[in-house]
């Protein structure tokens, strides 16, 4: 369980996150949705400590991450897997070296064990056989998937995914969603997924946080999102002209 309490964050004099509190539950896929630029990535980066919040607390299973020393933070981070919005694969390493990187760093696995684990993770994201390619030789969606494979390689306790589906076709998207849901439940991870994709929200959104202009605007489940009468969230969900016709009327 990851708990954030009263997080505030400004860049310069622009307030980006405004007093957001939420509990991300273990064994569930917790989803953060909101318009582009609403502050989702910023919240995620505050949670993992890449941005220091102006005020507020982040706790990992009771460990007060925000107040911890750099050393203690490193220990928590060894249990974190993160998929960045831009992938952030290491350019100088091949796909398989990227995925093996956390294993090289933090485990004493033999080469065979590592290979096995790498191939398993790559198969999970439908990238089998692409082991020897460099990130520059991958398409945008393939980079995302390779980065996801790296994020889950070392069986993290906490998994953060910043838009795992952007740049993917609907079919591959579903595969990735299913994968995230499956490993979250099977391994009892605490998973936080940022997405724009309403398909994913409905597929795997067991607990949803809707961010509107940096505020915690609405929380609920994927079923509740269909029945809410919150104006902003309805605008978000039923954005297109086509969907507006399906929008439930009050």
């Amino acid at each position: 369980m990851i708990e954030i309490k009263n997080i505030n964050k400004s860049f310069g004099d622009r307030k980006v996150v405004n007093d957001v509190s939420f509990v991300f539950e273990t064994g569930k896929t917790n989803i953060v949705i909101g318009e582009s630029g609403s502050g989702k990535t910023t919240i995620l980066k505050v949670m993992v400590g890449l941005h220091a919040p102006d005020s507020g607390v982040v706790e990992y299973d009771g460990r007060p991450f925000t107040q911890q020393s750099e050393k203690e933070k490193q220990e928590v981070r060894k249990e974190i897997g993160m998929l960045f919005q831009g992938g952030a694969l290491f350019d100088s390493l091949t796909v398989e070296q990227n995925v093996a990187f956390p294993l090289d760093m933090f485990t004493n696995m033999s080469q065979e064990e590592k290979n096995e684990r790498v191939n398993y993770c790559l198969a999970k994201v439908k990238l089998e056989g692409r082991n020897k390619l460099f990130p520059a030789e991958l398409s945008g969606g393939m980079k995302k998937r390779a980065a996801l494979a790296r994020a889950i390689a070392n069986n993290p306790k906490y998994l953060f995914c910043d838009e795992p589906n952007s740049g993917l076709d609907p079919k591959t998207s579903l595969v990735i969603d299913a994968l995230i849901k499956e490993i979250t439940q099977d391994l009892g991870m605490t998973t936080v997924v940022i997405t724009h994709d309403m398909n994913s929200v409905m597929e795997i959104g067991q607990k949803i946080l809707f961010i509107y202009k940096g505020n915690n605007w609405w929380t609920g489940t994927n079923k509740e999102i269909l029945t809410t009468d919150n104006e902003e969230i309805l605008d978000f969900v039923y954005a297109s002209e086509f969907l507006k016709q399906l929008k439930p009327r009050k």
């Binding site: 400590g49 490193q74 981070r77 060894k78 974190i80 993160m82 952030a88 760093m105 933090f106």
Partner: peptide
């Protein structure tokens, strides 16, 4: 380049 493409952040997140 590693900094602006978040590769350094990725290292930090791994606890490195």
């Amino acid at each position: 380049t590693m900094r602006i493409s978040e590769q350094i952040d990725a290292l930090e997140i791994m606890g490195i």
